[in-house]
Structure formats: C-alpha cells, structure tokens
C-alpha cells in the first residue's frame, strides 16, 4: 500500500465549516439583529421559498442563463484556443486582443451590453460569454500547444478523418485543459450571471438578491446564495467528477506481460 503523504483523514472535512456555522449561530444570538439572521432562520427562509415555488423559478432562470452562456463560451473559447495554439500567426494576431479582454472588468462588459443592446436576454448572455471566452481560450491554447506531434503523424499515416482527429486524438489530450476551463468557468460564470441579473433582468437569483438588498433582507440573500452554492457543488459531484473518472479509465495501473 502506497501512503499518500498529502492525504488528510476524513474527519478533517468536518472541522472548519461546522465551526464557522457554530460561530455564526453564536454571533447571531448575541447580536440579535435582522442584519445577521441565525442559520436556522436562513434555513427556514430557504424552505419557505422552496415551498412557495419562488426558489425553483429563480434558480431555474439563473441556471438556464449559466448553461447557455457556459456552452457558448466553451465552444467559442475552445475554437479560438485551438486556432491560436496551432498557428503562430493566428496567435500573434489575436493575442493583444486576448490580453485586453482578459483585463476588462466584467462589470464594464455588462454595462456596455445593456447600454448597446438594451435590457434584453441576449445582452445578458452575451456579456457573460464575452467575460468567459478569453479564459477558456487561454487554457485551451496551452492544451493545443502541448498536443503530441507523434500522434499527429500517426493520424496522418492512417488517414484519420478531420472528425476522427478531433475526437480521438485532440479531445482526449485536451481533456484536462477542458476540465480546468469547465471548473473555472462554472465558478466564474454563475457569479457574473448574478451581477447581470441584478443590473437588468426581472428574474433569477441575482434579481432576488437585488430585491432582498433593497429591504435589507439578509436571510433571503443568504438563503439564495446557499441554494446556488449547493447546485454548483451538485454539478461538480454528479457530472464533473464522474466525467473525470470515465475519461481517466485508461490510466489504470496493471501491466500484462508476455
């Protein structure tokens, strides 16, 4: 049995987070203010919102925007990253633009999109996409640069079609990069979507946060935040981790001899 020096025992997971919640509960008790509701009150608010359907409606609206923006950003970013990683000329042409976009604050894009296109759904999603595409492109570019030229030659000798080359040779090599872009992407995108909703949409978690903010309803703010954090964790556990395991099956140890 190989011991993993970096691996901590399971109980460590149950120390810091519960302590924070305990501290929160204590502070709420001591302060006894609406501005810091107790964890139990946040939970009650969450259950209320779930029961009257508001929670699902707004979560659904936000999740829909996240999924659309994420899909478009991943597809565009991957295409741009591949093109830049495979061609020095393309890279030199677009790199300055990439640097500008990477440093453009999300808020600026959102405001500009709303100003130019109005407070419409397309503007909202477009703003998120523009924020995310450069990150995906940079990550995928790294992957494209590290593609194994020996497998490339093999694919040429055996006359792989373009599609086979993409699916069988490139995607598996890009997989770790795509996963990194996906994880970073989800974390970033849903936060930007909330800002987009807060500034110019009439539904979604961001809109609800906006409403709650106007009446200083901290319990609702925390309830919605918690709900969305849970959803993102579920995506990680139910989709991303199984995908990781499936894609890494071929790395299993065990060597046959003859």
């Amino acid at each position: 049995m190989i011991s993993h020096a970096g691996r901590a025992p399971a109980w460590t997971y149950w120390v810091v987070l519960p302590s924070v919640i305990l501290l929160w509960a204590l502070a709420a008790m001591v302060l006894d203010s609406n501005l810091l509701p107790a964890p139990t009150r946040v939970m009650a608010t969450l259950l209320d919102e779930a029961a009257n359907g508001q929670l699902w409606y707004h979560l659904g609206a936000t999740l829909g925007r996240v999924i659309i923006a994420f899909s478009v950003a991943m597809a565009l970013g991957t295409a741009i990253g591949l093109a830049m990683g495979r061609s020095a000329v393309t890279n030199a042409l677009f790199d300055p633009l990439l640097v500008v976009l990477l440093n453009l604050p999300a808020l600026v894009t959102i405001i500009l999109m709303y100003v130019w296109f109005g407070l419409v759904e397309t503007a909202a999603v477009l703003a998120v996409v523009i924020n995310k595409v450069p990150n995906v492109a940079v990550t995928v570019r790294e992957g494209a640069r590290s593609l194994d030229s020996r497998l490339e030659q093999m694919a040429r000798v055996y006359r792989f079609t373009r599609w086979q080359r993409f699916r069988e040779v490139w995607v598996p090599q890009l997989f770790p990069y795509l996963m990194a872009a996906t994880r970073g992407g989800l974390a970033l995108i849903w936060k930007i979507v909330l800002v987009v909703e807060l500034l110019g949409r009439s539904n979604g978690v961001g809109f609800q946060l906006h409403m709650a903010f106007q009446v200083f309803d901290v319990a609702t703010i925390l309830a919605y935040s918690l709900a969305f954090i849970t959803i993102v964790q579920l995506i990680e556990l139910a989709i991303l981790q199984p995908l990781d395991r499936r894609a890494n099956r071929w790395r299993q140890p065990g060597v046959a001899h003859a």
Binding site: R150, L151, M154, V157, Y158, V169, A247, W250
Partner: peptide
C-alpha cells in the same frame, strides 16, 4: 497504403487495442 511501425507504439493510449484497430 502505408503501414508505419514507429519506434514508439503510437497507439491511442485512451483507446483499447480493439478500438485502436477499428479506428483504421
């Protein structure tokens, strides 16, 4: 049609032998 036995096997490591053959 050229079959090329490279110095390294250059099979796709993420595909089984069967899948590697079916790909050609």
């Amino acid at each position: 049609r050229i079959g090329y036995l490279f110095q390294e096997h250059r099979l796709l490591p993420w595909r089984t032998l069967q899948q590697n053959l079916r790909l050609v």
